[in-house]
Design a protein around this nucleic acid. Structure first.
Length: 516
RNA sequence: GGCCCCGUCGUCUAGAGGCCCAGGACACGGCCCUUUCAAGGCCGCGACACGGGUUCGAAUCCCGUCGGGGUCACCA
């Protein structure tokens, strides 16, 4: 059976982490079962939409490798895929409901409704709106509406129980008596989300509506709308929401600024963003996909992480390659409790994926970060590329994110080390160390091969001769040539720097030690 | 507040009556390895929200309580 699922974001200018997770579940199911995954843009709220706000969303999906069979830029047989271009269909459907007595005109003003609501609230009674023309004959209602267009409401049938058999949550029911008659068309003829969605899902032959659990309460109204329209209801699956890290609060689209913590800001600055840039972009925070791309996460890791958030393959699989995820994804194994987003685990997974990545791809991924940090120029010739490759190889699995290259490798690209006083103090200013280093420097000047294994052998023999611990010299060597105590293996660093530079830097380091 | 959903280690989860005095992963702590940092190895910490049932037997079924969340628009 070919299934059809859809994800319907509104163009907000960024791709939200929770949204992608929902989209991913839709996508995985269609890829597994065979069918179409449709992207539809819910832009009925014209005031809030900017045309340029769509691109970041499409870019985000493409970066993650989540492709759509129908939708923006690819088209499809059920287009257009923008709700703002489909309003005539909603009007047509609403009018049909009006003629059939499933909808009626409502002349209440917003103010009147508000007053009613408040009154009900004070009386501690649930507010359920029933318009005065509910039971007016359809033909009469049509005349009223044509004479004086106004909002159209769906006539919710009384005394019924709406039963949903949700694919994730099981049986859920609602009493229609507690459901107010919802507006489906505004006085100016624009449809409301709840109605447009149903009309579109019918028109686009959607078979499975897989969406965030926050839509669960919309479902009875939508099911009644299908009924009124005389259409079969699709299957529904409500995916639990994604919560903030270590929290039970929904990872909200609003108020994302609070995720830009000092640590997050520091990370962004480390990869070359200025405070002004960070503040001017509302999508640079951990609740968006763009953030992870900017920090150099591998998209496969994000997909794996998100797929595993609320869904599991079995009792132990954590790293689940996409192929496997597609082969085994099922809604039955989606957890029905909310899940908190865990940045630590994502980071771990990113590292796991990085170590699987061929060196050439790592080099390619790292270059933009080096360029933005100004450590290499805009053009990358063979020589630069080769040096980058050597650094990447030396970094080994210290590189979990592409941006991690900036953490340890900067001294290897800068013309001179930036000496950390504490490191100099601890490793160079020890009694006897400067002399030792100076003596070893002479050996380095004379050693025939300047490759890492040869250098290590040279140093070990040197230390053995003198009966000193190799560590002493190693640390001094690292600090004098890189200025810091952390980094890739010191012999790799020396080999990358090259003889001349190493000799120069040792002298430089020694001068530092003598000075301060 | 009404309606609805949810409740296993800090976090993600396994668990569909006995395999569970609850398994894995991330994080955390310790030790080992070691030239730093990573990585790796070993060990440890750590949960069935609570209370009643049902049953020979319950994390698993039922009821209640408590707690958390979602949603209540002429937003999406």
């Amino acid at each position: 059976m070919a299934i059809r699922t859809r994800f319907a974001p509104s163009p907000t200018g960024y791709l939200h982490i929770g949204g992608v997770r929902t989209a991913l579940f839709n996508w995985l199911l269609t890829r597994r079962l065979g069918g179409q995954f449709i992207l539809r843009i819910d832009d009925t709220d014209a005031e809030r939409n900017r045309p340029e706000a769509l691109q970041p969303i499409l870019d985000g999906f493409r970066w993650l490798g989540i492709d759509w069979d129908e939708g923006p830029e690819v088209g499809g047989p059920f287009g257009p895929y923008f709700q703002s271009q489909r309003n005539h269909l909603y009007v047509e459907a609403a009018l049909r409901l009006l003629d059939q007595g499933h909808a009626y005109p409502c002349y209440r003003t917003k103010e009147e409704l508000e007053a009613e609501r408040r009154q009900a609230e004070q009386a501690k009674r649930p507010y359920v709106h029933r318009g005065e023309h509910r039971d007016t004959p359809p033909a009469e209602n049509r005349r009223l509406y044509d004479a004086r267009p106004t909002a159209l409401r769906l006539k919710v049938p009384l005394g019924q129980t709406v039963v949903l058999n949700d694919l994730i949550r099981g049986r859920v029911e609602w009493q229609t008596d507690l459901l107010g008659d919802p507006v489906i068309l505004r006085p100016d003829g624009r449809a409301l989300y709840n109605f447009a969605t149903v009309v579109d899902d019918v028109a686009m032959r959607i078979t499975h509506v897989i969406r965030a659990a926050e839509h669960l309460s919309n479902t009875p109204i939508q099911m009644l709308t299908y009924q009124a329209l005389g259409e079969p209801t699709p299957l529904f699956a409500h995916v639990p929401v994604v919560n903030e890290p270590k929290s039970k609060k929904k990872l909200s689209k609003r108020d994302m600024g609070k995720f830009v913590t000092p640590e997050v800001r520091a990370k962004l600055r480390a990869v070359g963003w200025t405070d002004a840039q960070i503040d001017s972009r509302d999508d640079l925070n951990p609740a968006t996909v763009a953030f992870y791309r900017e920090l150099g996460y591998l998209p496969a890791a994000l997909v794996n992480y998100l797929g595993r958030l609320g869904w599991s393959l079995d009792d132990k699989s954590e790293m689940i390659p996409l192929e496997q995820m597609i082969a085994h994804f099922s809604l039955e194994r989606v957890n029905d409790a909310p899940a908190s987003f865990d940045p630590d685990k994502l980071y771990w997974l990113a590292g796991e994926y990085m170590r699987l990545l061929p060196v050439e791809e790592r080099v390619a991924g790292v270059i933009p970060f080096l360029q933005r940090a100004g450590l290499i120029g805009p053009t990358v010739d063979a020589g630069v590329r080769d040096r980058v490759r050597r650094v990447v190889e030396a970094m080994g699995d210290r590189l979990k994110l592409f941006s991690d290259i900036l953490l340890y490798a900067a001294p290897l690209f800068r013309p001179e080390p930036v000496y950390e006083p504490a490191a100099v103090q601890k490793r160079l200013k020890k009694p006897g160390v400067p002399e030792l280093l100076w003596a070893f420097r002479e050996r380095l000047a004379a050693v025939p091969s300047f490759e890492a294994p040869a250098l290590e052998e040279l140093l070990r023999r040197f230390c053995e001769e003198r009966g000193i611990a190799a560590g002493l010299l190693i640390h001094a060597l690292r600090v004098s040539t890189t200025g810091t105590e952390v980094g890739p293996g010191v012999f790799d660093c020396l080999a990358i720097l090259g003889r001349e530079e190493v000799l120069r830097r040792i002298a430089l380091g020694l001068r530092q030690a003598a000075a301060g």
